[in-house]
Design a protein around this nucleic acid. Structure first.
Length: 685
DNA sequence: CACCCTGTTGCAATT
DNA sequence: GAATTGCAACAGGGT
């Protein structure tokens, strides 16, 4: 095998001809070159169970972008006398089969730091070296080799951007111009028995024609990337923005013709070539303007270096994409609320600014950097207190430019889990957008249901008088949702929780165990209930603590207390408004439980008090109910494990874990089923 | 006196 | 407007 005269060029990212050292090396001194891309069905083929249109791993926009990039790559290869070979299957297996069967002496592919590609590369490299095949895997996706920077820093990645910049200095390749043009590529060799296909269309992959009507404005491919780069380099303001980071408000609505991040992600555009072009522009422009000549050399496209920063930290940090086992990540007792998460993901939080951004994510697969900040903050430490990993997953799926290191890095950043720690600074879902776009054009564009809402109300439409809502043909609660959380109270609660979590992390020197988190969670829920109970401004609230006590103390033997609303307990809106004020964090089911308490609703006491062993995941506590869902209160286990009662809704077929003691519950319907009477948002009389 | 390690302090942090 | 971190600079002590 090793005696062969051909090279295999394995494309993964780096879907380009220009500045492609692996391709260049493959071409040099070879009689044949096999340019190969392997389509992984998990990444490309439709998954009907996925949370959005697309495959198991990717939304449809990025799949489309990748296909377009491959078509363009094939075209550009053809211009140089070659073509792209497309095979389907598990990439590692396919590669090894190719190396076995084809006449290959060199295997070339761009080095990649993502864990997925590291594992894949190692597998293939192991085989290649055992078969005596030379492997060439240059660093060309990033400006620097992350391993070099980490070594320079004594084996640890720098944890601040500034220290990274100092460490990084100038990239080693920057002293001589990059090789951009490849004049020709040796022909493709004999492919033997392999069934080589063309780049498939979405339809051929199994997507329906109608699946394709939600178009992103980004067309994939190297040609488009270079065209955009050329066009953008003549835009002074655009260029300046890569030197000095600053918010660009107009970018929220401006047509996305200058966006390059998706092209960097797939390597349609070389970050190194991009860097070189920007430096050339600076040289020419700055010569005539202010800074002294000695400073010209120091002007760098700082924006591009953020990418390098995250690549470096990500590469040097085990479990970078998780909270647990991640040394640089604060351990925080995030909530697990699937309904709030769904509201966020599906753009129905009731905050138009947030929802518009989430619609743009779904439709375009791209949003402005600051827009990402807003929704990430909202999901995590700002309002919903949901785990950043959940938000990360949504971005990873839907963003075209989604990049493992950068995406995880930014979620760590925005959730105040790492890099950035000022958790008191919370983006307002109302005033932040208004500051840049007072008329709400961005919202009107992505949420047409609000397009006729006057600008005074468009950022908080639930405050609009009914007459205004009617005139705008948008009734809040019907045509567009009410806010799922009250921002004012949510931020207070989030700040409190972050403060407690930070204190715990500090006390335990970052070594926070799962048990520690659990007991913090217990403490937080308990004090939340106490805050609520002692809230002075409502008559119902004043009676609440008594109710709590009276239900816990009479039967210490009972491990469960079950409550159910009577039919006549109907919400009264005046009370509801008050609840908004009192509720520390009014969210989803949690909110309903608390609301129920506050309103001092009439409760049927007769229903069963299931007594039994502590409910575990394997053997959950069974709660009987006349209907498909009911309120259940968990007082914890016996003795020491006892805690203040925590209320939650238990639904048929949906096991629930008590947030405090982790006890599991399931519902058994013993009555007629269906929704319980006298409850629900659409009640009226 | 040079060198290394540890602890303290002050500063700055992409919007 | 408050508040946390990483890190550079400095100080001290031991060898």
């Amino acid at each position: 095998m090793a005696s062969g005269s051909g090279s295999l060029m394995w494309f993964r990212k780096g879907l380009r001809i220009h500045d492609n050292p692996a391709l260049e090396y493959a071409s040099r001194g070879s009689a044949f070159v096999y340019p190969l891309f392997v389509i992984d069905p998990h990444y490309m083929e439709p998954d009907p169970n996925a949370s959005s249109l697309g495959s198991t791993r990717s939304g449809i926009n990025r799949i489309r972008f990748l296909l377009e990039s491959l078509v363009d790559l094939d075209l550009n290869l053809k211009k140089l006398g070659s073509r792209l070979l497309v095979l389907k299957g598990e990439p590692g297996e396919v590669l090894i089969r190719c190396l076995k069967e084809w006449d290959v002496k060199k295997l070339c592919f761009e080095y990649d730091t993502d864990p997925y590609y590291q594992a894949l590369s190692n597998k293939v490299k192991d085989y290649a070296s055992s078969a005596g095949i030379e492997v060439f895997s240059p660093v060309s996706h990033t400006l620097f080799n992350p391993a070099d920077i980490i070594e320079k820093n004594g084996g640890k990645p720098p944890l601040s951007y500034q220290s990274f910049l100092k460490l990084a200095g100038e990239p080693s390749w920057a002293s001589s111009p990059l090789s951009i043009d490849l004049s020709s590529i040796p022909p493709v060799g004999d492919v033997g028995s392999f069934e080589i296909s063309q780049v498939p269309t979405l339809k051929e992959l199994g997507y329906m024609e109608r699946d394709q009507d939600e178009l992103t404005p980004f067309r994939g491919g190297e040609s488009e990337a270079l065209r955009r780069l050329k066009e953008s380099l003549s835009d002074k303001e655009w260029v300046a923005n890569f030197e000095k980071p600053k918010g660009d408000p107009s970018a929220f609505t401006k047509p996305a013709t200058t966006i390059l991040s998706p092209y960097l992600k797939f390597g349609c555009l070389s970050s190194r070539y991009f860097y070189q072009c920007l430096r050339d522009v600076y040289k020419n422009v700055k010569k005539h303007t202010s800074p002294p000549v000695s400073l010209v050399g120091q002007i760098r496209p700082l924006q591009l270096l953020w990418r390098e920063f995250f690549y470096t930290v990500a590469f040097g940090t085990p479990n970078f994409d998780k909270m647990k086992g991640n040394k640089i990540c604060k351990q925080i007792p995030w909530n697990d609320d699937d309904e709030l998460l769904a509201a966020w993901r599906e753009a129905r939080t009731g905050y138009p600014w947030i929802d518009a951004i989430m619609v743009q994510l779904r439709k375009w697969g791209w949003m402005h950097h600051l827009a990402r900040h807003c929704v990430a903050c909202f999901l995590t430490r700002g309002d919903m207190f949901i785990h950043w990993e959940k938000g990360r997953d949504v971005f990873e799926r839907l963003l075209i430019d989604s990049d493992w290191a950068i995406n995880n890095g930014n979620w760590l950043w925005l959730s105040c889990s790492s890099f950035f720690y000022q958790y008191n600074r919370i983006y307002s879902p109302i005033s932040f957008g208004r500051k840049y776009d007072p008329n709400g054009n961005y919202i009107r564009h992505f949420l047409p249901v609000l397009k006729d809402m006057p600008k005074e109300y468009i950022y908080e439409p639930w405050t609009a008088p009914l007459s205004v809502q009617t005139k705008a043909k948008c009734i809040i609660g019907k045509d567009y949702p009410k806010p799922v959380v009250s921002h004012d109270s949510a931020i207070k609660e989030c700040r409190r929780k972050m403060g407690e979590a930070y204190a715990l992390n500090k006390k335990l020197n970052g070594l926070v165990s799962e048990e520690d988190l659990k007991s913090l969670r217990r403490k937080l829920v308990t004090s939340q209930l106490k805050t609520l109970a002692t809230a002075p401004c409502r008559s119902a609230a004043r009676t609440a603590p008594l109710r709590f006590q009276s239900h816990i103390s009479p039967s210490p033997a009972a491990s469960l207390l079950v409550r159910h609303f009577s039919a006549e307990s109907v919400a009264d809106t005046a009370v509801k408004k008050k609840v908004e004020d009192v509720m520390p964090i009014a969210t989803g089911h949690e909110r309903e439980e608390l609301e129920a308490e506050l309103q001092g609703k009439k409760i049927l006491e007769d229903v069963n008090f299931p007594v039994g062993p502590f409910g575990t995941k394997e053997a959950p506590a069974v709660v009987k109910s006349y209907y498909d869902k009911r309120i259940v209160g968990c007082p914890g286990g016996e003795g020491e494990d006892e805690h203040d009662v925590v209320w939650f809704w238990l639904e048929k077929g949906k096991p629930h874990e008590c947030p405090v003691c982790s006890q599991y519950f399931v519902l058994e319907v013993v009555g007629p089923g269906g929704p319980p009477d006298g409850h629900g948002d659409d009640d009226h009389h």
